[in-house]
Simulated assay, not measured.
Amino acid sequence: MADRPPRTAPDLTTDEGRISFNRILNDRLPTKRAIAQGLLRNESGEILLCELTYKSDWDLPGGVVDPLESPASCVVREIEEELAIGVDPGALLAVNWLPPYRGWDDAVLFLFDLGVVPERVATRARLLRREIRAVHWVPSDEVAAHVAPYTAEMLRLVLDGTGGTAYLENSEPPRRH
């Protein structure tokens, strides 16, 4: 077996060296799944939930952030693709770290305020049938009966909050250590 020349560390004093070092880190550091969802309400205060084809829990509109895509861009793209509804993300309501759940690894969920729209927006939605079975306007006090427990708790905290962005871990404020 021929001797290999020793690896040399990238020269961090040059742009090329720093970029090379960043590539090494990108290849070795863990990645985390990111999810972007939106809170869309009608004039009555009901929340839009999606009845999904691939799981029993209903969910807020949105989806998984693609590589190199921002969470805000993701929520716009996903809602356009899955519901044919154009949205403008408003305030970031919550950043919620989610532990592993039903076979998924942990993730970070970004919840955006999508504002108030007329009720007819849901009836005019063109659903991506391979993912969305139906959409429903649900009163906030009935949401927990339809969504995963972490979604119900996150919405409860966001809707009961005093404003600002909530940082949550498994839909709870982080505990002091």
Rank of each mutant, 00 (worst) to 15 (best):
M1W: 12
M1H: 11
A2L: 02
R4I: 09
R7W: 02
D11Y: 09
D15Y: 05
E16W: 04
E16H: 02
R18N: 03
F21S: 06
F21G: 05
T31W: 03
Q37S: 06
L39E: 02
L52N: 15
Y54I: 05
V64W: 01
V65P: 01
P67S: 11
A72S: 14
E78R: 15
I79G: 01
E80M: 09
P89A: 06
A91K: 14
V95F: 04
N96T: 04
W97I: 09
W97H: 11
W97V: 14
L98Q: 12
L98C: 05
P99Y: 03
P100N: 08
G103S: 13
D106V: 05
L109P: 00
D113H: 09
D113W: 04
D113V: 07
D113L: 06
V116T: 14
V121A: 11
A122K: 10
A122V: 07
A125V: 02
L127R: 15
L127E: 07
R130Q: 13
A134R: 15
A134W: 08
V135W: 08
E142Q: 15
E142T: 06
E142N: 12
V143A: 04
A144L: 01
A144V: 01
H146F: 13
A148Y: 06
T151Q: 08
L157V: 10
T162D: 10
G164Y: 15
G164P: 01
Y167M: 04
L168V: 00
E169Q: 06
N170T: 00
S171D: 03
S171P: 06
H177V: 14
H177M: 07
